[in-house]
Design a protein around this nucleic acid. Structure first.
Length: 373
DNA sequence: AACAAGGGTTTAG
DNA sequence: TCATCTAAACCCTTGTT
């Protein structure tokens, strides 16, 4: 009913309020206080957004993505609140050690973000689910004893249900969805709780009277593909039924981007030096990954926060920051020119560079051909 | 019909 | 109220093979 192949045992691991918890481990003084991790844009004092916060802060109303100034206002009367800037290098180092713990415990491993990973332990537990539960418990314990970090885990037959399990019980959760329990777990939940269903999708579903995952599971797939397109429609229908055959597999990186908030909104390409440094930053990432790219693009966020992009495929792959910069500069020049011509005169708030279409430094074969197994 | 290029949207963490 | 940064998946249009 749920899977067509052999039954699997999948564990989803999610490190709790990761950035904030890293800071608590580094400086135990702040434990027990509201901790808010901020991305400062550098425009003005306190301009920027909240990246994440510990549960003490969340329970006071702090949400990820919220303006820092708003968060400070909420915690105005809370004298022990701690606001810290993101220290991504530190979190990355912690993450790498934790991921190693998870990786060695699993036959198949897939990291999906800095603080999340899947394990496929099917081959390690012929006994069925009890074996998977044991492995999950030991990984969770090991992460805590070695790094002093709490995590939440979800155990189920596939990645989707593993993810649904983890998300249902945080922080420090341990949730099992046994084979056959999927429909019971999903059916009463509001459709917005289904992984992949955000505010836009939720409101489109509301328009056709679909409010719960159970209702979505009964919705004609054809109707869904009409509204959401072929792929998404089918996926929504399958996910609402707890069906997910996607393998646990490490995926090669497909794109790299760097974007910054400009000191002041700009109506012309007067931020070349910023773009140059982003370009060289991308070069160093390419070098350390031993990759070249065949596509270069720019990202532009207007004053009204609309995203725009331009991109260009290269004749031959490159690793050069100089070339990435030159192409980006062209694309920005072209963007502002079109902008002026159309009489729009949109100003940019944020600007960035994106590269993609990677191939190995040595191997002339494009990455897409080595997708198999 | 299948594929590439280019641009936009949505989601997630 | 003010509104970061990174990455993936998908959608659509247009043009070529």
């Amino acid at each position: 009913m749920i899977s067509n192949g052999k039954p699997r045992a999948i564990i989803a691991v999610d490190l709790d309020y990761f950035y904030a918890q890293c800071e608590e481990v580094r400086n135990p003084e702040i434990q027990g206080k509201p901790v808010v991790i901020c991305v400062y844009s550098g425009r003005r004092e306190d301009s920027g957004a909240v990246s994440t916060a510990n549960y003490i802060a969340r329970n006071l109303g702090i949400k990820s993505g919220m303006p820092i100034a708003f968060a400070k206002r909420i915690l105005k009367g809370t004298s022990d609140a701690v606001f810290l800037p993101v220290d991504l290098g530190y979190y990355q180092a912690v993450s790498e050690r934790v991921m190693e713990i998870i990786k060695v415990g699993s036959e198949k491993f897939e990291q999906t973000s800095i603080d999340e990973a899947f394990m496929d332990v099917s081959s390690q537990c012929h006994t069925g689910f009890d074996g998977a539960i044991e492995i999950a418990r030991s990984v969770k314990n090991e992460i805590f004893s070695l790094e002093k970090l709490t995590s939440s885990v979800g155990i189920a037959q596939n990645k989707l249900m593993g993810k649904m399990a983890v998300d249902s019980n945080k922080p420090n959760g341990f949730t099992v969805i046994k084979p056959g329990e999927e429909a019971l777990f999903l059916s009463r939940l509001p459709v917005g709780k289904l992984f992949g269903v955000g505010p836009k999708t939720e409101s489109k579903l509301k328009a056709i009277q679909v409010r719960t995952i159970g209702e979505l599971s009964l919705t004609n797939e054809h109707k869904l593909t009409e509204i959401f397109g072929k792929n998404l429609g089918r996926t929504l229908n399958r996910w609402a039924n707890g069906i997910d055959d996607s393998p646990v597999k490490e995926r090669p990186m497909e794109q790299l981007s760097r974007i910054v908030t400009l000191k002041t909104d700009s109506a012309s390409f007067d931020f070349q030096e910023v773009i140059r440094s982003l370009s060289y930053d991308l070069e160093s990432k390419l070098r350390s990954s031993k990759l070249m790219c065949r596509s270069v693009g720019i990202i532009a966020i207007t004053t009204s926060l609309k995203a725009k992009s331009r991109s260009k495929n290269l004749q031959s792959p490159t690793q050069s920051g100089g070339l990435i910069f030159a192409i980006s500069a062209d694309l920005f020049a072209q963007f502002f020119q079109e902008n002026a011509a159309s009489g729009e005169q949109q100003r940019l708030r944020r600007a960035g560079v994106k590269i993609s279409d990677f191939m190995s430094e040595t191997d002339p074969e494009p990455r897409t051909l080595e997708q198999f197994f």
